[in-house]
Design a binder for these strands. Structure first.
Lengths: 110, 110
DNA sequence: AAATTATACCTAATTTAATTAGGTGTATAA
DNA sequence: TTATACACCTAATTAAATTAGGTATAATTT
């Protein structure tokens, strides 16, 4: 992902939010899109990405369609019905998490 | 820390920020203070806390003073000069991290 | 034409940072 | 007197990344 370890544990909700907003995407596309929208700040490594996509598919949160583009393989992922439900939960948790970090960063009184 | 894994990698900057703002604290006190200011949202486990304090001390970012309160032991930690410098860096990284998460959560266009 | 870079997938070994589940012992409250 | 709070600690395990490879095609650069 990125030199710091802060993003550890965040990749799953980030990918789900990405798929929620963008719809159907393939793995490589996700890495490029995230790099683009975060202005290079967030670099998703493929070693983290692909195993996670496989896990989310196995858990029934993602479904996959394989396509041949020219002679190249692409595996398009999209959220299942349950995946969408879980994304809502994950985003809610992310927001709570960020609120808590805000409290730590900007404490009124300690 | 907390049921979700979102906080993974955040404990170190959180503790350093806490010591920066509050000054000298002992371990148990840190767990209680964080629980209090985050309204119970963030629970630092002792299994994560103590090894981290020892590591930061070994790295020269924290210094420790042991005191006897009644018959009980307390180990007060505070930031060293270098620890304060590193805290500034860590907080800056935390803010960048949060900005990036904001971009993911509230994308203008994807 | 050849070499490099970009696209597109993948995995195994290792590292890091937590959780879980214990342990020691004192002081206070039910 | 029994449980809870205080206050420290560690070892084993788990989770989630990084690092460092691998395969192969397409496009670009030298």
């Amino acid at each position: 992902m990125n030199k710091s370890s802060l993003y550890k544990g965040c990749l799953e909700p980030i990918l789900m939010q990405l798929l929620q907003k963008h719809g159907r995407m393939y793995g490589y596309e996700m890495t490029q899109k995230v790099k683009e929208i975060t202005k290079g700040e967030l670099h998703i490594t493929e070693g983290a990405l692909y195993p996670l996509l496989h896990r989310l598919e196995a858990e029934g949160l993602l479904e996959v369609e394989t396509e041949n583009i020219g002679n190249r393989l692409r595996k398009y992922y999209s959220l299942t019905k349950n995946g969408k439900k879980q994304t809502t939960v994950a985003i809610e948790e992310m927001k709570n998490f960020m609120t808590t970090l805000q409290i730590i960063l900007h404490p009124k009184t300690i």
